[in-house]
Amino acid sequence: MKKLIELENLTKEFNGQVVLKGIHLDIHENEFMTLLGPSGCGKTTTLRIIGGFEEASAGEVLFDGIDISKLPPHKREINTVFQKYALFPHMNVHDNIAFGLKIKKMDKSIIDQKVLKILTLVGLENYGNRHISQLSGGQQQRVAIARALVNEPKVLLLDEPLGALDLKLRKAMQVELKNIQKEVGITFIYVTHDQEEALTMSDTIVVMNDGAIQQIGTPTDIYNEPENRFVAKFIGESNIVEGLFVKDFLVEFDGQQFVCVDKGFDEGQEVDIVLRPEDLDIVEVGQGKIEGVISSILFKGVHYEIMVETSERTYTVHTTDINEIGKKVNLDFWPEDIHVMEKMGTY
């Protein structure tokens, strides 16, 4: 796929406080890319620089290979769905959506046609004459998306667009947004701090922390092969264990050696090892790899969250099997369940 936007060494300071520490990022055509990270890590700032609402302190934003750092927002082929929608309160739904087209001086008949088409796409075909204040949060949200989409931008920026919605509506809108993106075939740059949302919707996830990129990869990559402790912790719960990389395909932790599928680290290097709770199995004593005692059981709806205390630490296990507190058990896992990561400072 062709590169559409390139961020090169993007740096941003606010009154001496560095909030972006040299971001390098390639965004491709038709890609659904998600910026994921905790509050205050610089996601919105990155988006605002791409949109032209904030100027970078250093670095470049390339669009189709051309530096657009100095281009004002209204000249960029980029549209934004703002976090709080920013719908114009003095216009009805139709006029809000038609705003960009009217600026481009299109024919009224073409405008009406396009607005109707996009309203149908977001499921609001009968709402054209409604006043903005007469819409529910989810409807306003969809109007905001329609208003941006109708201009057929090459890139759509979305800043936590589903943040204000309740869980059920959010799930429905996630599916809807993903469908729209596939159907219309444009690049989405999506900001969220909800890792589940990122995992379900994205082609590529960019995990950020403290103004720096931690990892770029597909949802599966990010989930299964977190590159460091921060990513592993941020993407779902994890058992993170300090260990030693003995040699290719062999690691040591909790005083034992285990076969794994990782290679390429230095022999004897200290590493972090991730064991996902859902990858661990609870088996009878003598049939598994690590001995322990069940110390607590929590019902989580679909599965049980079980704490197994071993001589070294407490492991979290997710399982649908029924167990009882105080029982002596073994923990079992496959070589491919062991994820070895570069050791970085503790987060």
């Binding site: 949109g51 032209g52 927002p73 209204h74 709080k84 114009f88 600026i103 201009n151």
Partner: peptide, 17 residues
């Protein structure tokens, strides 16, 4: 709401528009 001004420019309106 200042974000309305940004939204307007985002949709292609010059500062004067």
């Amino acid at each position: 709401d200042k974000s309305l001004l940004e939204a307007s420019q985002d949709l292609g309106a010059s500062p004067i528009q």
